[in-house]
């Protein structure tokens, strides 16, 4: 057991995967000598060599596209995209090639690669550094999507993604990179694609992922003071989504609030709301409610707090749910 930040847990997870499998290699901008702008790959170039930690030229399509070739060739490439908003030069490669090569070849070629994308806001930065584009990728068949909310998951999910024979995108909650937690290097938390009930409750369920998980937990604590028992689910995987765990919880609590940083419109909250309504309609005491950002481009830092859902917005949604 070690106490690590989320960022250092990812470093440790990557290092272990590289130790155990010589075919694992990292590609990205500034990931070598600098160790990445968030220092997530710090020390890995010195330890594993420039042939396994590639400080690439600047080109996201280049990073992801060459990783496809490397993966087909038998490597396990891990691509780093520097910030969420810079994923899009690689959008073509990710959605038309990474996601589809296996289906195109009727299973003859696999693309076992990992794409790490630091995502989410409230870091007080300029445009393109604070986005939550997970729904754009979840909508594309052929990709798996993970998002850790804590150090233990961060450590293991990197390794599980690398070991997976399908392409996996890991959305890393950059504003939680410094969040510390216990990492158990011996015992894996199990299936990375399963959701986790991280706080039990009986009156309502809050589903969150990545950077919003601590907010959801804070909401459960605050609700407790008002005598409400709120269950919190950390979704962990955004493709596939573990609807069984969510549905089972809602059958018990009768109420569901989904909170994410991404805009509400067209966000994954809508998909969860629809599935749960289909599966547990007669258990619902209130409509499923969503808390997300507005249908606006991510705003300048001075007003980002108004855009991203916070504790108050989650509590307000819970109040509305209880009011039915």
């Amino acid at each position: 057991m070690s106490k690590l930040t989320v960022a250092k847990a990812i470093t440790a997870g990557l290092a272990r995967a590289m130790e155990e499998n010589p075919k694992v290699m990292l590609l990205g901008e500034d990931i070598g000598s600098l160790g990445g702008v968030y220092r997530v790959t710090e020390g890995l170039k010195a330890r594993f060599g420039a042939h396994r930690v590639l400080d690439t030229p600047l080109g996201e399509a280049g990073i992801v596209g060459t990783a496809v070739g490397l993966a087909v060739r038998g490597y396990r490439p891990v691509c780093e995209i520097q910030f969420d908003g810079f994923t899009f030069p690689a959008f073509n490669q990710i959605t038309t090639q990474v996601a589809k090569l296996r289906a195109r070849t009727e299973g003859r070629l696999s693309v076992p690669m990992t794409i790490r994308i630091p995502y989410g806001g409230v870091i007080g930065s300029v445009e393109h550094h604070s986005e939550s584009p997970e729904a754009l990728f979840a909508h594309t068949a052929g990709l798996r999507i993970l998002t850790p909310s804590n150090a233990q998951d961060a450590y293991w999910m990197e390794q599980q993604a690398i070991a997976c024979d399908d392409p996996v995108i890991i959305f890393e909650p950059k504003r939680r990179y410094w969040l510390k937690g216990e990492v158990d290097e011996e015992n894996s938390p199990g299936d990375p694609f399963a959701a986790a009930v991280i706080h039990e409750g009986t009156d309502a369920t809050v589903v969150a992922w990545g950077p919003m998980v601590p907010v959801a937990l804070a909401a459960a604590k605050a609700a407790e003071e008002d005598g409400r028992s709120v269950e919190v689910i950390d979704l962990r995987s955004l493709s596939p989504i573990d609807f069984d765990t969510v549905t089972a919880s809602v059958r018990r609590t009768g109420r569901l609030v989904i909170a994410h940083e991404a805009p509400t419109f067209g966000g994954l909250g809508g998909e969860i709301a629809a599935r749960v309504t289909e599966r547990a309609f007669y258990s619902l005491e209130a409509p499923v409610l969503r808390v997300g950002a507005y249908h606006l481009p991510y705003p300048p830092a001075a007003v980002e707090d108004h855009y991203i859902p916070d504790l108050d917005r989650v509590l307000e949604a819970l109040d509305r749910s209880f009011a039915y």
């Binding site: 901008e29 500034d30 000598s33 702008v37 400080d55 690439t56 030229p57 600047l58």
Partner: peptide, 10 residues
């Protein structure tokens, strides 16, 4: 330079 990436890489 491109952040830490030297011109020789580009």
């Amino acid at each position: 330079w491109a952040i830490s990436v030297p011109f020789a890489t580009q």
